[in-house]
Design a protein around this nucleic acid. Structure first.
Length: 719
RNA sequence: GGGCGAUUAGCUCAGUUGGUAGAGCAGCGCUUUUACACAGCGAAGGUCACAGGUUCGAGUCCUGUAUCGCCCACCA
């Protein structure tokens, strides 16, 4: 008897939760439970969504894409593992909890103290994490929840500590004064990605340091010039060649300075006067010049953006000092020109404060420093990152991102890994006076731990390893690392992918993944990036309630080539809801007309039947090929068109008169053919639309697996 | 400023080694035929941004132009 559920249109809402539980309870998302003694592994580690967040379209796309690939591989017989996790999102989470406490109790983090704040954050995370986890389940993601990891759980925490100590022991982590982005307003350093550049009007002043000084230079920040130690010119600039190597003394606005003329290839001959006043302590580029020419690095501005030099500028704010210096230059007759220019000013995203580049004691990972591996070979981290791609061990699915990656690696400088917040992996270094010890626990009375925590990308870089049990030599790590694929948004290229390659390259001397798949950014109907500040977030879970998650999933990936952006269009989703119903009705028709057909008997297929089965075979071949190349969009498109426009519109329509006719042999053959095409189609569609296909599969009278989740992927008769 | 892309039907986008252009949605006409109106059938719609070049042949390769966008650097 036909299951009465087919008498009504497909109702996604009543199916999805139940179907997901069926999958989860089956245990098959854990590769240890998969049938048929599988040996060849296929693994993906999910880029962990923010633990306190809600699912947005970007994560829904990521989950859908990865689930499609994972389901395909699982059906193909791979020992398939997909590890779920959540990310602590340190800066964002701490900021939110601080804000909540400020609003509710009027207290700052300093009122609470470090320990109490961290306790509050844990409580908050614990109370919100089920939202995101529930939403991840709602997408149908066939994740192995038994291996769930959180970036701040005990296992991951101790792995991160281990990593820090090992890299320190290898001489790759050091503490040093470097120019950092200091936010005088927030009294903290901030990372490059938290900087917002604002275009503002500025005055470009051209002047010389003193009457005897032969080379004019230009600046928008005259007050920093009291910290100058050199003037840099291009090595092949004839205008200044005769001065290179000369040293000049001057008293600049009450401050004695000594300027050496140096030749440096980074200088742009065309800009300004073609000569740069080098202020090592207050400009990143100048710091590097000072590095190359062994120059002093006097600091003239402090953490409050006030001048520290003696004389008339002492204690003044930089903006006030600027006026003062300009007035002095003018009165001394040293000012040559003033020119109004447009100028990008770096400001802090969170506080709006103007970034002051300052030298500060920070922890760094040295990317160009040589280290020796246990086997005696010498390597550098930058070389590791280069080699991963050059060797072909890691390949980028989209070529242009490989170029971008190489470009990024070539320009990489030492990586500043300390952050001045409280929530995160705290730097395992202890101080007592001038002594320091690098270890996880306190060396004893009188020692105090470094206040800073690690950059979130330090721990994220270890993610493929720590989720598999590293630093322990686990069965999982041996089996599933390197992972097959990393799949993430291309906006995260430099931050994450490169750091994972770095970490795996250092610790395991291997790549973290074989293929890098970047999906595009999901934009709103107007092509804008989805963001909280625009308030244009469309909740994929809401859309799924309306159209079904299958429709949302396939709409997100259809037509989305790797690396290209897409827009969320509700009409598109509605179209695929109709498709889900189409599949439903195809199943109803086939099941109604094939009841009692024995598929084990040998049928006499007509020429037309054989052609229909050949078309099915070609479809299997194409979908398989596309999936093997991770072209999920093309695979889904092929399956979709076959099922709707060949199977439904042609094969079924032609079958109707035969099924109503009197030729019993042809009837049985037709029924068998339809049933074969139905079951194969369900398999082809299952990665993309898992819920509706599984719901139908459960009602099938004859099948080769209890669940479509683990049904064998069809083989094409055509090779 | 350096690097990298995009420009194809009204809208959103595919088009995998060069061989007479495709889908979804919207729109038009017809059809309520027991799988499905969340449907079917049919028609329409594009000098593939522009200008050159290579080729028997270019949406596809090369050069240039225009517009839009992304990444990096931030500029003295």
């Amino acid at each position: 008897m036909l299951d009465p559920k087919f008498l009504k249109p497909y109702d996604a809402q009543s199916s999805e939760g139940r179907i997901y539980s069926t999958w989860e309870n089956s245990g098959y998302c854990n590769p240890d439970n998969l049938p048929h003694n599988r040996t060849e592994p296929f693994s993906i580690v999910l880029p962990p969504p923010n633990v306190t967040g809600t699912l947005h379209m970007g994560s829904a796309l990521m989950l859908a894409l990865e689930d499609m690939i994972v389901r395909y591989k699982r059906m193909q017989g791979f020992k398939t593992l997909w590890i779920p996790g959540t990310d602590s999102a340190a800066i964002a989470t701490q900021a939110r909890v601080e804000k909540n406490i400020q609003n509710a109790e009027g207290k700052s983090r300093y009122d609470l103290g470090r320990e109490e704040l961290l306790r509050r954050i844990d409580v908050y995370v614990e109370s919100t994490k089920n939202i995101i986890i529930g939403q991840m389940r709602a997408t149908g993601a066939s994740l192995d929840w038994s291996r769930y990891a959180y970036t701040m759980d005990a296992e991951r925490y101790s792995a991160v500590m281990h990593a820090f100590i090992k890299m320190y022991e290898a001489g790759l982590i050091y503490r040093g004064n470097r120019i950092v982005n200091w936010d005088p307003k927030g009294q903290t350093t901030i990372s490059d990605d938290e900087i917002v550049y604002e275009e503002r009007d500025a005055m470009l002043y051209t002047f010389t340091y003193g009457k005897e000084f032969p080379i004019p230079i230009a600046t928008t920040r005259p007050e920093t010039k009291v910290g100058d130690v050199a003037v840099a010119v291009h090595p092949s600039d004839e205008r200044y060649a005769e001065y290179v190597g000369n040293v000049y003394d001057a008293v600049f606005c009450d401050v004695p300075i000594r300027i050496t003329v140096v030749a440096d290839h980074t200088v742009d001959r065309e800009f300004g006067t073609g000569a740069v006043g080098v202020t090592p302590a207050h400009s990143l580029a100048d710091w590097d010049i000072a590095d190359r020419h062994n120059l002093q690095r006097p600091q003239v501005i402090n953490e409050y953006a006030k001048m520290t030099v003696e004389g008339r500028l002492h204690g003044k704010k930089t903006t006030v000092a600027r006026e003062e210096v300009v007035a002095w230059l003018r009165s001394e007759g040293l000012l040559i020109t003033e020119e109004k220019i447009k100028h990008n000013v770096a400001t802090a995203e969170r506080t709006g404060g103007i970034i002051e580049p300052l030298p500060k004691l920070q922890w760094f990972v040295a990317v160009n420093k040589e280290f020796t591996r246990p086997d005696g070979t010498v390597d550098t981290l930058k070389e590791v990152m280069r080699r991963a791609v050059d060797s072909g061990k890691t390949t980028f699915l989209t070529e242009r991102f490989e170029k971008q990656y190489r470009h990024w690696v070539e320009n990489l400088r030492d990586w500043c890994i300390s952050r001045q917040i409280w929530f995160g992996h705290r730097i395992p270094v202890w101080y007592q006076g001038d002594a320091s010890k690098v270890q996880v626990t306190s060396p004893g009375e009188g020692w105090s731990q470094d206040e800073d925590v690690l950059d979130t990308w330090f721990s994220s870089g270890l993610w493929t390893m720590t989720t598999l049990g590293w630093p322990n030599d686990t069965e999982d790590l041996r089996t599933y690392h390197p992972t097959a694929l990393i799949e993430t948004g291309y906006d995260i290229l430099s931050f994450w992918v490169a750091r994972m390659i770095l970490m795996s390259g250092f610790f395991l001397n291997d790549v973290p993944f074989k293929t890098v798949y970047f999906h595009g950014i999901v934009r709103d109907g107007q092509g804008r990036k989805i963001s909280k500040s625009l308030g244009n977030n469309i909740d994929p879970v809401d859309l799924a309630a309306k159209y079904g998650m299958d429709a949302v999933r396939i709409a997100l990936i259809m037509g989305m080539a790797p690396g290209t952006d897409s827009k969320v269009d509700e009409n598109k989703i509605r179209g695929y809801k109709n498709f889900a119903n189409k599949i439903w009705n195809i199943a109803r028709f086939v099941l109604e007309n094939t009841e009692g057909t024995d598929l084990t008997e040998t049928h006499v297929f007509s020429a037309e039947d054989q052609e229909d089965l050949a078309a099915l075979s070609r479809t299997v071949l194409d979908v398989t090929k596309h999936m093997d190349e991770y072209r999920v969009d093309l695979a889904a498109d092929r399956a979709y068109h076959y099922v709707w426009h060949t199977f439904a519109d042609e094969v079924i329509e032609r079958a109707k008169p035969i099924l109503k006719g009197t030729d019993a042999v042809a009837q049985r053959a037709t029924a068998a053919k339809l049933y074969t095409i139905l079951t194969t189609s369900l398999k082809l569609l299952h990665p993309f639309m898992p819920f509706v296909t599984e719901e139908i599969w459960l009602a099938l009278p004859q099948k080769d697996a209890e669940l479509l989740l683990i049904a064998p992927w069809p083989k094409s008769a055509i090779q």
